[in-house]
Design a binder for these strands. Sequence first.
DNA 1: CTTTAGAAAATCAAGTTGATTTAATTGTTT
DNA 2: AAACAATTAAATCAACTTGATTTTCTAAAG
Lengths: 401, 401
Amino acid sequence: MTLKKVISGTNLEQAKSHNRRVVIEAIRTNGALSRAAIARLTALSSQTISNIVEELETARLLRPEATLKGARGQPAVPYSINPDGGYSIGLQLDHQLAVGVVTDLSGAMRARIERNVDQPTPTEAMPLLAAISSDLIATSRLERQRLLGIGMAMPGPFGVEGMTSVGPTALPGWQDFPVAEELEQLTGIAVTVENDATAAAIGERLYGVARKLGSFVYLFIGTGLGAGLFLDGHLYKGSRHNAGEIGHVIVRPGGLPCDCGKRGCLERYVSLRAAYDRLGLADPDHASPELLEQLLANGDSRFEAWLAEAIEPLRQAIDILEMALDPETVVLGGFMPLPVIEALASRLEPLHLSVSSTSARTTPRVMVGAAGKDTSVLGAAALPIFSETNPQFDVLQKPVG
Amino acid sequence: MTLKKVISGTNLEQAKSHNRRVVIEAIRTNGALSRAAIARLTALSSQTISNIVEELETARLLRPEATLKGARGQPAVPYSINPDGGYSIGLQLDHQLAVGVVTDLSGAMRARIERNVDQPTPTEAMPLLAAISSDLIATSRLERQRLLGIGMAMPGPFGVEGMTSVGPTALPGWQDFPVAEELEQLTGIAVTVENDATAAAIGERLYGVARKLGSFVYLFIGTGLGAGLFLDGHLYKGSRHNAGEIGHVIVRPGGLPCDCGKRGCLERYVSLRAAYDRLGLADPDHASPELLEQLLANGDSRFEAWLAEAIEPLRQAIDILEMALDPETVVLGGFMPLPVIEALASRLEPLHLSVSSTSARTTPRVMVGAAGKDTSVLGAAALPIFSETNPQFDVLQKPVG
DNA sequence: CTTTAGAAAATCAAGTTGATTTAATTGTTT
DNA sequence: AAACAATTAAATCAACTTGATTTTCTAAAG
């Protein structure tokens, strides 16, 4: 009989690792904090916090700010995240563009490289991505041992026959390609791969509008449509890494045919591709988001028609996410230009009645993401930082085997 | 400035509590295990396991089974969950019925009480529920100090204006009533309240078909329709306790009008109430699920028509849940009689293409729940047991304040 | 204006808890 | 008898807690 892998036990070492993360998280969400304040927030003793803060300071992850005077008692020394404590590389691959960035611990962009591609296959893209990475390391002259890893974002879903590689919103040829392993091989750096929506969600959680939220959904409007799910303080990726792939949910039974074989899929109405199609572009495979921004600015009537038609499916998407997941908020973003996102957002009201329609809300039901068009690369860069610093259940688990 | 409550730190005490739960969980999912086997599974040292097992044995939560011979080495003593180690009371309230049960640690029902009600208000129901509880304690003569708590299941959603108390699928008058607090007051026992779908999910996870699953969705077909979400080993309840309330998701834009004000809501097609309505019953408020079972057995043509019409919306519900959450499986159950659930399940194929349609599956996409018509009370009884024994992130957190 | 009490932050040193390590013992199979 | 697996016991170790102490400031009293 083979035994089921089970949640594993923990020990002091794991506990300490957790506590270290808790301290970082407390400072990240609240800004600079004194040792005493951290102790109160985390329910740990001030002595313990003192030890951890000292450790994190010598590791250069935290740095002291100017001593606070003006209150009674001994003046407090606030500590904040040291931007130079670590760096991360973010990569993003997409139908027409490969982008790479370096960010520091504060999420600030330190370098950026962009290369045009055209429906890249793995054989074409992998060397390019490796090259971008080494160029980034070279030009930003960052200390190699302070590099936390490479995070990569690409369109999902992953590994679904008849969906992953079919149709204009999917990247062809990547169906079962082991991106992370290959890129790790090529670069010698640890690689995390997520779909663009998940990456964007992490970005917003670490540095954007979702900084203080425990549960939210990032609705990513790109070539297709997907959602990144952050639930109860944890990233939820699904049992096969495809949670949030709601682009192919049916919102119009019998509606527009989709390449996946179904009719009336959400992303046939709300996505870059849906807009290009509605505009009747001659070469939708090479249209760019900037075009849409222009058309919006010009008040183009066909684009306005698309907007009007996209609103109700978008409302339904939000409705589905709210009803299924009861998040604190839904964040809108993606490759769709910010002005277009804002135009969509401003026309959403009245939203459908849902479990989110309660008067006792602290956050709006829908927010627009903070990171703009680089949301997905910046989010990708946030992935290694997130996995190194976020308090999560896994950290408590002893590695098994 | 008020500081954001943050994830709190941990210490040895919390770690031990976690490890105790891990041991119980290992035995629950795998059946009787020797100390050495537990040590291997949990990555804890055999000494640690020895200590914990001894402790749990004296607490009567575990009991030794017959020594295993036939292998090399010293014969192992397998330990299993001691059914008499604890008891739990499950309550379920609904439009026409109040049910209470006592279960032991193995989930076996030890007593059951049923009372008819009619659209009960809180003032009517609370004393009744308290009476059921004390009757259960008296008749089953259980040791009071081994009673882990009361779990209660009732239809959701909770506290949503214009939805919670509106329409035939909702219980009127409970909008903001503090059920748990009141019942705790009346009985002097700790009370957990969840919606029926969530309770059923926990039941299936502890004792049913979902015993070994890390992520699954329980689709509860009752008077209305809701889903219980078990994701990555944790119950996900949503930011306002209303996750999974997908009954009011729109599956037919412009379809049948719903009391919530929208049109084409899922539960207008798939629910007991939807079936009653489709049959044109004179008094749908007092129809019973057994009627549907009879009609199915008789091959009633109007009921067959409902079945046929319900399939596609049900497919869509499954599609939505699969795409949004990528679970290992979707479990069907609820107040709908088992033969009807099975009839629905057997007609589902072909399911929609989704992220679940991969050939590399270990579980079927759709399963029928094991607990039958008492699924929701039994699940309710499982709630206190779950919260006492399941390894979860919260356990590691030091209580703050 | 000076002094002093009070408060908050940070540190120190000893104490506690619970997992790990190491070694010994037991009982079975080959 | 030798090998092997399960269990037990004692000693050790890592990390958090506790309580006393020190530091440094503000505010009130004299």
